[in-house]
């Protein structure tokens, strides 16, 4: 087994969940994972111990690139809901999926991955203040949604 394969088996679900939290689309999350690990295969050197950070950062970049693509469409009616929305029946799932992508990403990194706001800021290339703001707003929204 190559190093890339070994890292793939260790971190595949983490990268997948992060991509899913960003895109809310299984297909896109799967494609992003493939892109990320293929990049890993081509990557010459990664600082030992920093492999996961590299993967998460590459994943964030890949998600951003995907979402940055142009969308041209008429606005009425709005585009159809994603496939995931159709299967949202669990309240927590519904609440998380109702968050905007940039909120979902910080919620995932903070609550599931256990990163600090400083680490998230570094991963997402945004300020620590913005991470804290997004976390605060996401918490408020989730609390409100789950209480309804």
């Amino acid at each position: 087994m190559t190093d890339a394969e070994s890292l793939f088996h260790t971190y595949k679900d983490d990268v997948y969940r992060f991509a899913l939290s960003y895109t809310r689309s299984r297909e896109e999350a799967e494609d992003i994972c493939q892109t990320v690990f293929e990049k890993l295969l081509r990557q010459k050197t990664i600082t030992p111990g920093k492999e996961k950070a590299w993967l998460m950062q590459t994943c964030a970049n890949a998600c951003r690139n995907l979402l940055r693509c142009h969308w041209w469409q008429r606005t009425a009616p709005l585009d159809s809901a994603s496939a995931l929305e159709a299967e949202e029946e669990h309240p927590v799932k519904q609440a998380i999926h109702s968050l905007a992508p940039h909120y979902r990403a910080v919620v995932y990194l903070y609550y599931y991955e256990g990163y600090s706001t400083q680490e998230i800021a570094s991963l997402l290339h945004i300020s620590q203040t913005l991470v804290s703001t997004r976390l605060h707003r996401a918490r408020q929204t989730l609390k409100q949604l789950l209480e309804e």
Partner: peptide, 19 residues
Amino acid sequence: WICGGSAGATTRASDWKYR
């Protein structure tokens, strides 16, 4: 009306409604 665009650097058109 013709509409086009991108919702943002970190989101997509389907998420306009969140912005």
